[in-house]
Design a protein around this nucleic acid. Structure first.
Lengths: 346, 346
DNA sequence: TTGTAAGCGTTATCAG
DNA sequence: CTGATAACGCTTACAA
């Protein structure tokens, strides 16, 4: 049934009347092999549909030409649901690694799992890209360990000085600033912030920090009662907005720590008879594909997933090659649409 | 710098005072090894953080425990843009393969590329999952070849009798039927169809066939002028709708061959001052995440990506294990939202 | 420019 | 239940 007698380099060596290493060299286009033999060997290889056995190659060379992408999610997200922002990242990482000639092995992990799992230890991959939102205190430990072991990896997340390993991340502080600054310029002074309150998630913490800086810049006080706990999901955003509305705390706008939260918040507002942006202005964060199609279309902070994918892949590869990598902070930008009421009031 | 002296099974053998194959057996929990040695060996392995080198293992066993996912796109899609429907598929395939204990190697290909590339030939993977929309006539040839070579693969796409290889796909004909039937029940008699006209894309052809069947069932003629060429993207849908509107052909509803097409069509209608669903009713296809958030929310045909991912993974794995697999047709269902005007007119 | 020899770290096969 | 021995198919050194 299997029918396939895969040809080996030895077979080709026989047919071409050369030694087996010569075949190997010829196929790698080594200039050490004469043009004549090189072409002869390559022709035969093509005829037989010969493909180098990567396992043998990897075993011998101790290199896999493969990157592993570990996507971890902290909370018990609904099965088979992936945050659309990470899906975009996944797409751009896939393209970037293909472009660099690396295969990509992908894996979903629970943060609770034994993480680095075995990708580099088992020689499945030469390097690892970590992607996800996670509790910082929990993953910083694992990362330190990996770093000590000399693993090659890069993490998507907060870019902080003096932390082990390489990081690539968006400028969340800037994003938070831009969002709040935008709303303040639209004359909002009571702006709620829907995001994680624990400070364990540096992305969210930084977005809030930017929010605070915008307030400071405009001489506004930050009212802690306007910060409402919400995690990633639409569901969380919905509940948070509901809590906010029923709390009686006065507000005229909401800066959301993610687009999913914003979607949930809009839903909650609508159920309370509040119109966006007429009654409450909304700004999201991420710029997921859905954002532009929402009603009203969502003003949000865009993260450049394309650049992010490239930067992540470049970083790991540099690390693999022993070059000293550097962490990289990517700019975020404000995308003005309808939900913030900017177009109406301008 | 690399600092890592990865332990091998030989090291463990020394420490445990047993032969190296015994170590190997113990680690695989073989009952052939006495409980005592098994535990001793496993303890040492844990202490040293030993991980089996997969390249050595794969080379020797000629099995990789890895699946390859080839996502191909036919047209010159915008870089880094992936059809959201395939992104969902990708998510569910990733989960399903993890669940079955397989690693997943993913790769984007242009249909023009040398496809099967080398995944199975190079022993990178034990089996392949093909995902994408593609010109049937073009890929059927490649698939036949793979089939002859005894490769283990499954294709997402049209489930047709007597074609080589294994297929898993949605019941597109049913979906097309449900969409048109729904509109006809809402008293539409002039329903445009926006999708590929060439018949080279069986998914689209089947959706149109279902559309025709619904017309026949209700005793309606199908007007070929109502079939307008559109491919996958929002852009295509936009242009197609524009063409339709300016053509002067009368219509009161549109069945779109994908949600992206529907999004583009809605945009075009709006620009012509036509309201959905008041002036024109719309039904999409796929049920991408954005569909429910559109304004108006999109009535569409849902494909069960969760079941699809599982079925695909199950199929390849069965094929790998030499079991005779069977193609699988997954049901599609109508999701009624606002764009078809159902809720209003009922 | 080519060939020879060795070895990458496992698992398979046999014999004990 | 355990051990010796031989592969798996390639790349690297080194020799010619």
């Amino acid at each position: 049934m299997k029918g396939k007698n895969k040809p080996t380099s030895v077979d080709i060596a026989h047919l071409a009347g050369v030694s087996q290493p010569t075949v190997s060299r010829a196929l790698r286009n080594s200039p050490l092999v004469s043009l004549a033999t090189r072409q002869r060997v390559q022709q035969i290889a093509r005829d037989l549909n010969y493909k180098v056995d990567v396992n043998a190659r990897n075993l011998r060379s101790q290199r896999t030409n493969t990157l592993a992408l570990l996507l971890f999610e902290d909370s018990g997200e609904r099965e088979a649901f992936i945050n659309p922002f990470f899906l975009s990242m996944l797409g751009s990482i896939t393209r970037a690694s293909a472009q660099q000639g690396y295969d990509l092995l992908i894996s979903f992990q629970q943060l609770s799992d034994d993480w680095n799992a075995e990708y580099e230890d088992a020689n499945k991959a030469d390097g690892i890209i970590f992607l996800g939102y996670g509790d910082y205190t929990s993953y910083i430990k694992r990362i330190s360990k990996l770093d000590h072991e000399g693993a090659h990896f890069v993490t998507w997340g907060p870019v902080i000085e003096d932390q082990p390993g390489l990081f690539v991340g968006s400028d969340n502080e800037l994003g938070g600033f831009l969002a709040a600054d935008h709303l303040i310029r639209l004359e909002h002074t009571r702006i709620a912030f829907l995001g994680d309150e624990s400070n364990d998630y540096p992305e969210f913490r930084d977005r809030y920090a930017g929010y605070c800086r915008a307030h400071a810049k405009h001489g506004l006080e930050v009212d802690p009662r306007l910060r409402v706990n919400a995690f990633f999901s639409e569901e969380c955003g919905y509940r948070a907005a509901h809590t906010l509305i029923t709390s009686g705390v006065e507000f005229s706008a909401i800066a959301c720590a993610s687009d999913l939260i914003a979607i949930g918040a809009i839903k909650a507002l609508r159920e309370h008879g509040l119109k966006v942006p007429r009654d409450k202005a909304i700004v999201g964060f991420d710029d997921i594909p859905t954002a532009e199609h929402l009603a009203p279309s969502l003003t949000t902070i865009q993260q450049d997933t394309f650049a992010a994918g490239q930067a992540l892949v470049d970083s790991v590869i540099r690390s693999i090659n022993g070059e000293t990598g550097e962490s990289k902070l990517l700019p975020t930008r404000l995308i003005i649409r309808d939900s913030s009421g900017a177009k109406i009031s301008l």
